[in-house]
Design a binder for these strands. Structure first.
Lengths: 203, 203
DNA sequence: GTCTATATCAGGATAGAC
DNA sequence: GTCTATCCTGATATAGAC
């Protein structure tokens, strides 16, 4: 901290007074941030290491140095705390609906780039697909426990499917018909539908 | 037809007695079929001309000859009769629900490879995304006309989003929790939810 | 009409200087 | 720790023989 670092590397020019470890961390963060954004926008295949490096303002080789491979970068970029089931500690069905709408509310606006990156590639990248399946099945399990009545798992799966569909159409496809409606209205319209799926119903 | 064709080209060995035009059409069909299947399974980027040619039993150069480029091949492969809105001529809301479930019933089982190919790439391939948006917005418009009450378009958009979500989770992600349930059960469970979205409801 | 051969290029990955 | 230079693979696309 107190020693005067000699400007060895060119890149150091922008970050005076930082230790190597600090600079390394800073680089990693910037790379990850740029990667998440590009992966989220273009998906895995169309995103190049070079583009990520450019966006992060670092050298392409540095990206490899830190993450080993493009796949490694992707894995790190989409790894997040596995989102708890939307109905983690819901006590009645109305709370389950609230939880679902809440998680969707998130998805309609402030969904983190890492999640978007995962979703963007989940249909075309095998590892992203596996990740998505894992997360979704976990959420379905949690939801099924909070769902009374017969065929709880199927209902839960359909509830998550609805969530996925709305998120995909709104966030990834950016359908005008969805974008043109404020999310609280969407939530209000969706609520009875979710409720109906949770209701016990003689199929 | 009556003339004895001399075996000029090697490929002709498999198809004796066919005119050039006929053989050309046959090749195109086989290529398109193989392309649809591969695009549907792997998406645009991971599908190679070589793989399509191999699957179709023809030479890679032939694919280029017929379709000009990989993009051209994709465009042809996903071009289908634009599916009419699920609620084309529904007279009451229950028929709209039926139409939706019907189109979803299709999606759960017999969705054509061309549609799957389009869906598989709609999140990562710009042209597929544009195509998907176009089709979906058209279906939303049709649906909105058949939907009474306020915010008809938003409701219609949500209905289509649900359809997309279920199709994606079932067909493309192959979620076990959905796969484990027969589609008529899924339809039965989904029905009240769709109904709820169509009901006029004081938001 | 179909195939062989190849031009051309993009992008991931590596080696090594500093 | 960061950058330069480069290798190498895989894939699209083309030219031309048959």
């Amino acid at each position: 901290m107190t020693e005067q670092p000699a400007p060895r590397a060119e890149g150091a020019a922008e970050a005076p007074g930082l230790s190597r470890a600090q600079r390394r961390l800073r680089s990693e963060r910037r790379i990850l941030e740029a990667a998440r954004e590009l992966f989220a926008r273009q998906g895995f295949e169309r995103t190049t290491i070079r583009a990520v490096a450019a966006a992060a303002g670092v050298d392409p080789a540095l990206v490899m140095q830190h993450f080993g491979s493009k796949q490694g970068l992707f894995t790190q970029a989409v790894r997040v705390a596995v989102p708890e089931s939307p109905a983690a500690q819901a006590r009645d069905q109305e709370q389950v609906v609230d939880a679902l709408l809440g998680s969707l509310g998130l998805k309609l606006d402030g969904l983190p780039a890492s999640s978007l990156a995962m979703m963007r590639s989940m249909l075309t990248h095998p590892e992203a697909a596996a990740h998505a399946r894992e997360v979704l099945e976990a959420q379905i399990s949690g939801l099924a426990e909070a769902t009374a009545g017969p065929e709880a798992r199927a209902r839960a799966a359909l509830l998550m499917s609805i969530t996925v569909g709305v998120a995909v159409c709104h966030q990834l496809l950016a359908l005008d018909s969805l974008r043109g409606t404020p999310q609280d209205r969407l939530a209000a319209l969706l609520r009875p539908a979710l409720r109906a799926l949770l209701d016990e119903d003689p199929g």
